[in-house]
């Protein structure tokens, strides 16, 4: 009896030590580099960097490309996600697999695939050249990378949101005389607008961080395709201090974006069924 109690106590201690130790180790591993990065630059340095030409150029490119791709991803992704949720049926498994593919392979591969398709010697690239349209090494290429990598991810997540809508709400809308399009706009979309907004923020944050595929397919042209991430990479070779500063700024910006997304999803129900 006494022995069993001791053994049990030892067990509990061991387990507590196990999870406390693991979480401290992992937490340290995550937080330490972030803290070092945040504390490294002088505030005055950051401020001057914030107003520098390089940063403003990169910021302009980043905002322009990321906003455009976000809009396009929503415009094309929402109807696609709705279709996946409602009509995929037993092919859903295959579709979900395809949608997860771009998340699984290195973004470098995405860049190579895009080059092969739209590059000067690529399949569509040649066709486009006949109309004098060049996609690689333009802001359009950055946008195309964002769409290629992030749209499947968005469609997958938005389809899950649409899955959660009570089908009776859409049936009720149709019986009240609403067309499927009216139902989509006035019932389905408003019901998950908060979750979709949070989704948009995540997409935006991820598109800002995109690197490998962008540098391969769009290049690193200042004022044209050099985004903030590429600017950090560039600065790292010529002026490491500047790279640290830029990284800190990007870290702060991304954290704020993530925080906004989290706050939007704080209400327990993601999809607003009653």
């Amino acid at each position: 009896m006494n022995n069993a109690t001791t053994e049990k106590r030892f067990d509990t201690w061991l387990f507590t030590g196990f999870w406390v130790g693991s979480s401290l180790l992992l937490g340290g591993l995550l937080l330490l580099p972030i803290l070092v990065l945040l504390l490294h630059p002088q505030p005055a340095e950051l401020l001057s960097l914030l107003l520098s030409r390089q940063l403003l150029d990169a910021l302009r490119v980043t905002l322009l490309t990321s906003t455009t791709s976000l809009l396009l991803i929503f415009l094309l992704g929402l109807p696609t996600a709705y279709a996946v949720s409602r009509f995929a049926g037993r092919y859903r498994f295959i579709i979900d697999f395809c949608l997860e593919l771009p998340m699984a392979f290195p973004s470098l591969i995405a860049g190579i695939a895009l080059l092969l398709a739209f590059g000067r010697r690529g399949l569509f690239g040649q066709l486009l050249l006949t109309w004098d349209i060049r996609i690689p090494f333009t802001p359009l290429a950055v946008i195309l990378v964002h769409i290629f990598v992030l749209a499947p991810f968005f469609v997958r997540r938005a389809a899950v949101l649409f899955d959660q809508i009570d089908p009776q709400l859409e049936e009720a809308a149709q019986l009240l005389g609403a067309s499927p399009f009216f139902t989509f706009c006035h019932v389905s979309l408003p019901l998950c607008h908060r979750a979709l907004l949070a989704e948009a923020i995540m997409i935006f944050a991820q598109s800002i961080g995109m690197f490998g595929a962008v540098i391969l397919f769009a290049g690193n042209l200042p004022g044209k395709t050099r985004t903030l991430t590429l600017a950090i990479y560039d600065a790292f070779e010529s002026n490491p201090e500047q790279a640290f500063g830029l990284a800190t700024l990007l870290l702060i910006g991304s954290s704020l974006l993530l925080l906004t997304g989290r706050l939007l999803l704080r209400s327990r129900r993601i999809v607003g069924n009653l």
Binding site: Q168, L169, E171, A172, L175, L176, G272, N273, L274
Partner: peptide, 20 residues
């Protein structure tokens, strides 16, 4: 005719009121 063109009113058991 689709449900939207039938002009039928329905009170669902779970009511299906629009929460938004």
């Amino acid at each position: 005719r689709p449900p939207s063109a039938r002009n039928i009113g329905m009170l669902f058991q779970e009511l299906a009121l629009f929460p938004h």
